[in-house]
Amino acid sequence: MAVSSNVLVRRRSPVAVWLAENGALVALVVLVVGLSLLSSDFLSVTNLLNVGVQAAVTAILAFGSTFVIVTGGIDLSVGSVAALSAIVLAWGATPAGWPWPVATVAGLAVGVACGLVNAVLIAYGKLPPFIATLAMLGVARGLALVISQGSPIELPAQVAHLGDTIGRYLPVPVIVMVVMGVVAAVILNRTYAGRAMYAIGGNEEAARLSGIKVDRQKLITYALSGGFAAVAGIVLASRLASAQPQAATGYELDAIAAVVIGGASLSGGKGRALGTFVGALILAVLRNGLNLLSVSAFWQQVVIGVVIALAVLVDTLRRRETS
């Protein structure tokens, strides 16, 4: 039997393959070039740093969501968990009077704990991820309001430095975003947990029959998502120098959009940290650009909705072509 009949690979030029694989990156470049032609302010250093800071919180949330989406799940609670973590940190440091490192650890631990609760409901309670994390979306937001009694709480000064800019050109949120992005990439590519995420998302039953303890890996996955959400919440609060119970409302949808624009599939098994990073940048650049072009906030929502639909549509069409 001829080899060619067994190997059904479409021969395409490497350039075409690269473009198809990195569609989001291409879109980002086109967007940047287009906006720099349309608006003279866009390419200024100040504005680009602004875009970076804008992208940071979404990107950090989205890195966490990437883990979950790669396993074929979804985490709707990340916005609420981000707010709750920041509130716990601020409340611990100011009214409760804990030393700021203890308060910070407490804030991060709350995020991880929320993720673990999600995972227990999903892995052992057999709730659909959508429902379990929808419940957590409400619970975490509610707890944030209860603890803060509905008012912003001042952040300890040491933590608020996370919102600073080092020198003139190095905003700390951007550094945190890059570090978290690298951590996410390493987890996804190099660790057992990460490789297991791809296997579970690709075919949960095959993963189980290959000896992967699927339930335990889900615990790790959602805990990571909660932990990343906590970091995002703290970065967001540091920019405002206070933790606000209503902060990051609706951010979970931006995070999911960033992951999906970055080429991940909601059915699982596919997604990269770099893609998610590009997805978050596209959203931030788009918002910034539309502001510079004085497009009304109402129309911005329309444009961003269309972009999300287009991104997924292009990806779906591409996949249909290859299968």
């Binding site: 190099r190 660790t191 057992y192 947990a193 990460g194 490789r195 297991a196 791809y198 296997a199 690709g202 075919n203 095959a206 993963a207 290959s210 000896g211 992967i212 098994g269 596919k270």
Partner: peptide, 25 residues
């Protein structure tokens, strides 16, 4: 099989745990 994954990934599925040192594969 994990159909959407590469041949190498599928062949390494069972040994993923054994090939892990300190969390890294």
């Amino acid at each position: 099989l994990v159909l959407g994954a590469a041949v190498a990934e599928n062949l390494g599925l069972v040994t993923l745990r054994d090939a892990t040192r300190a969390g890294f594969v």
